[in-house]
Structures are given as C-alpha cells and as structure tokens.
Design a binder for these strands. Structure first.
Lengths: 310, 310
DNA sequence: TGGTCTTTTTTAATCGATAAAAAACAGTTT
DNA sequence: AAACTGTTTTTTATCGATTAAAAAAGACCA
C-alpha cells in the first residue's frame, strides 16, 4: 500500500496556513491551496475534509471559514518523509557511521528487514544509488560496497575541481547586468551573517555550501554537472551531520574560504578566482580524505563482512 | 519467475566447447567449465545434465566423455539475452527511432504492456536510466522524456571534451615502458585493418570506438569518468545502429581521426595530442547534433504526446 | 588437494492487491 | 466565461508472497 506521507505533510502545512489566517477568515480556493502546499487538489480536499472533521474549518463549497485555532496534534515528522528518503538516510548512516568496510556484500533481504521496508524499496534505492560510485552491481550476485575510501575522495575531487573551475570561469565572465551578481551579493551577506554567529549556527553551513556551489554552476547549466552535484550534496550533507570532529572550526574555515572566493568572483579577475577556488577545494578535499581515513583506522581489522552482520 | 537466459546462453556456449573437443575426449572439470562459460558451477551442472540427457556426453563423477557431435537444436538468440537488456534495447528504439518528442510523459504500465514485461522491470530500468540525463522523475507523477535534443548533445560533449583531454594528457605522459603503449599500438593495427575493409566492416567501428576511448581513460582511472563513458557508449551504440545516413562515410572519417589521434599520442607531443583530440570530438559532436536535429525535423509538429500513443 | 555431490542463500522476475495521489472530466456559481 | 467545486478515471507507490534460477557454502570423496 502506498504511504500517505504526502497527505500528512500537507496536513501539517495546512495547519500553519490556517493558523496564519486566523478565526473567521475564509479559506483560499482549492486550487490556490494546491499550489501553496505543493500537492494535487485531490490531496487538498482530503486535508480539508480532515480539518472539517476536526472542527477547524466549517462550511462547504466555495464558502469555507476558519472555525478555530488548530489544536489537533500534528503528524510526527517521521511519518511525513517518503519511504525512499528514509531508506537513503538509513543507508547513509549504515555506510558513514557504522562499520561498513570496503568489499562488504550488501544483502537486499537483510537490509529490507533492518530498515523495515520491502525488498523492492531497497532494490530501487540501490539502483539509483549506483551512480554515486560507492556500490557496484555484479550480475546475478548482488551488490558490493566499494568503500568510502581516500580513493573515492580523490576521484570525487578530481572531477569536482574540473567542473567548479569551469563554472567559476563562466560565472566571472557573466555580463555586468546579469542577475547572478545580485544573487552572489545576497549569498555573500548570508555568509557574513553566518560567520558572525558561527558558534551557534555552524550546522547551517552544509545547506549554504550546497546552494553556493549550485549558484556558481547555474551560470552555465549542464545536466551532467548538476547531476554530479547531487553526489557532492548528498555526501557532504551526511558527512557534516555525522563527522563531529572539529566541526565548528572546519565550518568557520570553509565560510572564510567561500568569502575569499566570492570576493574574487565579484572582482572578476580570472586568475584570482582560480586561486581562491582551488584553495577552497583543496581544503575541502583534505577534510574529506582525513575523514575517510579516520573511519578506517577506528575499526578493528576484519575479514569481508556482510551488511548488517554487526 | 526468473528467466533462465543465463542457462540457455551457457548451454549454447557449451555445445561449442564440446564440439571443439571432439568425440571420445574427456570433459574438463566442472570448475574449469564454470570459469570458461562465465557462470556458476550450479549452472554448469545443469548444462551438463542436459547434455547427458541429449546423449552428447556420458559418464559421471570425474569421468565424463564426449559421446557424440552435438546436433541438438540451440536456444534461439532472443532467449539468451536477459530481460533488462531487452527493455533497454526496446526503450532506446522507442526513443531514437520512433517519434519520442521532448515533454512526452512516460507511462510505466503502458510501456510494460508494450514491451511485454512487468512494471517492476520498467521501473528498474527507468531508475537506472535516469542518470543518462534523458528522462526526469517528478515525484508521484511519473517520468518525463526530456528529449534527444541538440542541447543534450552539446552538454554531453562539453563534459566529454573535459574528460577526454584530461585523459589524453595523462596517457601521453605515461612512462615509456608502460603497457599502455603496446595496447595503443595494437589498437592502431585494428584501426588500420578496419580502414582497409571499411566498405564491408564499417559496422564494427562502434565497438572499436568505445574500446579506444576506454583505453585512453584507463591511463588514469576515475570511477566517475568511467561511469560517464557508459552514457557515451550507450548513446553511440544505438545511434550507430539506427542512424544510417552517410554511415560508411561517417565511420571512415572517424577512423581516420582516430588514427591521427593515436599517432599524436605515440608521438607524445602534448599540444599535437590536444589538437587531434579536439578535432575528433568536434567532428563527433557535429554528427550527433545533426542527427538530433534531423529527428526533430522529420516529425510533424504535435502537442505533448504520451509514450506509446502512436 | 582438487574435485564432485548436496544444501542453503540470494537474486531476478512476476503477480496481484490496495491505498494514495494526480489528472481529467463534468458540472455550478458568480 | 472564468473560476470554482464535485466526481470519476488513471497512474504511481508500496507491500507481500511466490517461483525458478544462480550463486555460494558445506560435506564428502578419491
């Protein structure tokens, strides 16, 4: 049976919309709600029906009004994320946090049981995840985890450097009136703000980092580069989440490097841009490599393990 | 039920092995056969059992001999290709040959019926095929075909040029004693041989092309580049198969470009290598772009179609 | 030790069911 | 007629169970 995470998330969001309107106000039309919540009208109607049942809205047809400030319980957050996202998170956790060592054979059935989903879900995830270069399929013999190793980090950054330099050059050559410049200025402001509060907000950097690099790329869109950035984003997202060593310091350094990089772009000097870009990537690469090594050291040497055997 | 294409192919291959041995000879051990046929011992035993039933081999245990020259019918070729490969071929055909236009919505159920496979097979293929940048998933709303367009060709070749130049440089810098040089020489010989018989054998170029570029890449392996070459190989494989315009001429040109490129590499002059490499890629890009345009022109303008509606 | 016979695991593929969500269609109201 | 809502049809997502094929592991033997 299909999960109703879409409905649940839409319901939670709808509570916010209703609360923002206030008692007595009339609700926007179903199609407007549909656009606002990012779901189909069918789902909007289901949400509306539930709200009516809870006494939060009243009326029917085109005359619906807010009856009461919502005080019904929201759906727990875990129920609002789609199955595929959960599988992804659990897998990344298994890979980056637990002792997943190179050569480990991935057993679909075992993972399915462990994650509490059907094998089809696992298969689908593995098929999509294949392109990230961390697992490999051997026909008729399942999947092998290739390892989150220094080699992986090196290969990743070799490509990343090629792509980023190419995009940075194009970006720096954008015409003066281009909207990119104002977006970059806004990005700069965000960086400065984050730096000022880095002690408290350093967790927010992962997201800013991803948005920044995607902005650079958007100067000359290329679907293959975009798709490659999905890998970077995913790896860094989970890596930032779990590698706690020197976390604040690492992020502060990266923010400063970004600022240098941004200023170089704003200065539009190709060679300075290249320097700043290379410097940042080199430092990011070091961080990632170190973390792949740490992971390997911390674990006792063992034979070829099996997924989920620990 | 799982298809037994592996068994059928192994059986056909085994007939060759047995025929090569001749009547009266004793068979190699099961593990040797397993390695020779590229399947597990379990499957070898099944093949052996079938051969015994057909009176082709006799004996048991470690004493098995060829009884008769095989004259049993082979399994038809269509039954020896796995389902996934069939889906791929049919989909590529639909995309490149039929009227698949940008924006077409892909309907899983319809494709499944059309191809005669279960929806799960289609889903799995689409998930894997996603990374090729030709289709896109919209959550809860299926897949959209983005189109085999000039933009696709341009983006593809932008990346290809970056990767190929990088690999060619590394290759040219390989030490004198490296095995790459002899492999390249062998490759050169193959090219010369193909050129001599180009009128008859121009179909063989597609495969040679793929092997040549992969050899260049192998000088400095990078999993992301390898994976990108899967895209190139797939596109070109089917493209060569179906775009018949000027086929012989196109291939002859490409072979000559390859030879120039190979000689440049053998000469180890970085700037000449770069020139030859760029020239070849530019010409390959033109061919692909032209073919994406032709496709579009040949079709009558229509609204947003649906997969399989024609 | 290198082989074969036997058993256990795991994958590949299908089928059917069901609820969710989207999309299309058909009316209504202003 | 444009903007809605009510209703119906399609399509997707997910599960679970099933089956045969293949692979892998284990037991045994010359």
């Amino acid at each position: 049976m299909k999960s109703d995470t879409v409905f649940k998330r839409a319901f939670n969001d709808a509570l916010d919309v209703v609360a923002a309107l206030g008692v007595g106000e009339s609700l926007p039309s179903e199609s407007v709600m549909s656009a606002r919540l990012g779901v189909s009208r069918t789902t909007v109607r289901k949400v509306l029906a539930r709200l009516a049942a809870g006494g939060i809205v009243a009326g029917s047809g085109r005359h619906k009004v807010v009856r009461a400030v919502p005080d019904v319980p929201r759906f727990p957050k875990a129920e609002t994320v789609p199955m595929a996202a959960q599988v992804e998170a659990r897998f990344m956790e298994w890979m980056l946090r637990d002792d997943a060592r190179p050569g480990t054979v991935i057993n679909e059935l075992e993972l399915a049981r462990q994650f509490g989903v059907a094998t089809t879900g696992i298969r689908e995830f593995l098929n999509r995840f294949q392109r990230f270069g961390l697992i490999e399929k051997r026909p008729n013999a399942g999947w092998v985890f290739k390892g989150f190793t220094p080699a992986f980090a090196l290969e990743l950054f070799e490509i990343r450097e090629m792509f980023e330099l190419r995009s940075a050059r194009t970006f720096a050559a954008a015409p003066g009136g281009s909207p990119f410049w104002s977006q970059l200025e806004a990005m700069r402001t965000e960086h400065v703000a984050l730096l000022a509060e880095v002690d408290r907000r350093y967790h927010d950097f992962s997201d800013l980092d991803s948005r920044f690099h995607r902005l650079i790329n958007s100067a000359a869109p290329n679907r293959f580069i975009d798709s490659f950035y999905d890998i970077i984003t995913l790896i860094f997202h989970y890596h930032y989440q779990w590698n706690k060593r020197d976390e604040r310091q690492r992020n502060e350094t990266a923010i400063r490097e970004h600022l240098t990089y941004i200023d170089a772009l704003l200065g539009r000097n190709a060679s300075i841009v290249e320097l700043a870009c290379r410097a940042h990537l080199a430092s990011a690469r070091e961080t990632l490599i170190r973390s792949t090594q740490e992971g390997a050291e911390g674990r006792p040497p063992r034979g070829r393990g099996r997924a989920g055997s620990a």
